[in-house]
Design a protein around this nucleic acid. Sequence first.
DNA 1: AGAACGCATCAATTTATTTTGATATATCAA
DNA 2: TTGATATATCAAAATAAATTGATGCGTTCT
Lengths: 109, 109
Amino acid sequence: MGAVVAEENVLAASQASGLLKALADPLRMEVIQSLSEGECCVCDLMKKTDLAQSRLSFHLKVLKDSGLITDRQSGRWVYYKLDLKAFQLLEDWIADLKKSCKNAAKPCS
Amino acid sequence: MGAVVAEENVLAASQASGLLKALADPLRMEVIQSLSEGECCVCDLMKKTDLAQSRLSFHLKVLKDSGLITDRQSGRWVYYKLDLKAFQLLEDWIADLKKSCKNAAKPCS
DNA sequence: AGAACGCATCAATTTATTTTGATATATCAA
DNA sequence: TTGATATATCAAAATAAATTGATGCGTTCT
């Protein structure tokens, strides 16, 4: 039983690690910030973030692969938006982590 | 005023980015998990994580530089522990981010 | 004092991530 | 059909992060 819990933690940790890694970049953070205003097409994101097309596309892919954002195509345009479920997941994970740290301040024997 | 707020966000974002980056690594996550049980010296962390001394030391430095953990020396040993303030900061930041994403799901015009 | 221990740091190498410029693909407009 | 636009993808180069083994430094033990 302990083992199962441990394994679940490892799994959750590696999932969370993926989200964190995608989020832990200033450029991608800017993209997230832009998308926090609402769904947006790549060309508008280029203007907002002042990134070259290829570069932006790369970071959008990282974010999309992580699950933090989703895309939808409409005609020539591709629209990206945040996937709030992923953010909720992340928030829950951190809250759990913090909860599990109740003894963290206890000095060593 | 808008500019000031924007600048504050950028600053907070880059701060958060540092924490996230440090946290977004499976090995460091393991270390954090070990430390969540309480303060621990490097030699015990080595046993718990099964990492070579130099490698562990490197990751401890990354975590320490980010502010997620602190250290204290006592005799020959160095004890590390989580800095819960940093975790609180991170949780708050994510909560804020999520809050600011209320319009994020709104489709583009 | 000398030896062993616990840990940090450094240089060299390996590995991973990011950037850049070029090219490809699909859609739309003329 | 031809040309332009929006975006993705690819390969090469640049940059950054991690690993390894060696060495150094302070502390304790004998």
